[in-house]
Computed example of a mutant assay.
Amino acid sequence: MQLQSVIRAIYPAACLACDAPVEQENGLCASCWSETHFCAGPVCDACGAPLPGEDDGTVAFCDDCLASPRLWRRGRAVFAYESVGRRLVLSLKHGDRTDLVPTLARWMHQRVKDIAPDSCLVMPVPLHWSRLMRRRYNQAALLAQAISRFREAEVLVDGLVRAQRTVPLDGHSRDERFAVLDGAISAHPKRQASINGRSILLVDDVMTSGATLTAATEAVCAAGATDVFVVTLARVLKGH
């Protein structure tokens, strides 16, 4: 306790998003918390997007998921991909802020713990090897490993491979995204036996159209997965 007090005196607890002083480690200041649009209350049961109304426990879906039913069973997201939420994602993805992983993974675990069985095999959405070499880490893999520790569950970091180096999808339409990712992800040939007969919890940082998660779901189902759940850190909302 004395050592912790000394460390706290030298390095005061700071907000994860803006570095403002906070009372407890690994949290957000009041301002950043208010600007983080958490996906709480009634949400789409497939993607986690917030829905209007009161949360009465009824299973409901957003317009996107009604128009294009998902291949996975259920899904959740922590916050909307905007404001502070977007800043946190980009800090992890491109800013080498791997120190964010424990807190972000804990939030993801909290969102999905009541919908995905504890027996799920946790698997991240993969990066193409060239992108992994440039970035040096796969943020989805780091999140999946941390989530698996919270769940005390098995994790399979290299269960999926991205054989095709797809173009950046920013600015592409939904149909274009699905076309680009068609067949881009497959199960690792040496990991199919580990996937066969298992329920899978897929982990990714952001869901936009759902094309990447669809490709990953198709891949694990082709390898014999019996059920698929998804959790993302952020959800891009229509009109945002």
Rank of each mutant, 00 (worst) to 15 (best):
G57V: 11
L237W: 02
I147F: 08
G53V: 10
V101A: 02
D170E: 08
D158P: 13
L143N: 09
C120D: 14
V180W: 07
R134F: 03
E25F: 03
D158L: 06
A153N: 15
D55M: 05
H240M: 10
V112L: 08
H240G: 12
W72C: 04
A141G: 12
L100V: 01
C120N: 15
D170C: 07
E176Q: 15
T232Q: 11
A234R: 09
A116Y: 10
D55L: 06
S148M: 07
V6R: 04
L160M: 03
I7C: 01
A163G: 15
L213H: 11
R70G: 00
V161S: 08
G85Y: 02
A80L: 01
W72V: 05
I195H: 10
D204H: 10
S148K: 04
G159R: 10
A222Q: 14
S5I: 04
A13P: 02
D56P: 14
V43R: 12
V180H: 06
H109K: 01
D63S: 02
E54I: 14
W72F: 11
E82C: 08
G239R: 06
G85A: 04
V112E: 08
D205W: 04
P189L: 03
Q139K: 11
G197Y: 14
A17K: 04
G239A: 06
L104A: 07
S83T: 05
E23M: 06
C15Y: 03
A20H: 13
A46P: 10
V89H: 04
V122Y: 15
C62G: 06
R97F: 02
C29R: 02
A215P: 11
V6Y: 08
A215Q: 06
V155C: 15
P42C: 00
T214F: 03
F79K: 01
P69A: 00
D45W: 12
Q2A: 12
A40N: 04
T208S: 15
A234L: 06
V22L: 09
C39W: 00
A20K: 12
A9G: 02
S173G: 14
Y11V: 15
A60M: 13
I115L: 15
A9R: 04
M207Y: 09
V101K: 05
V112D: 11
R191H: 14
H188C: 02
M108V: 02
T214A: 11
Q192W: 01
D56W: 12
D99K: 04
A20P: 09
A146Y: 08
I7S: 01
V22Y: 12
E176W: 09
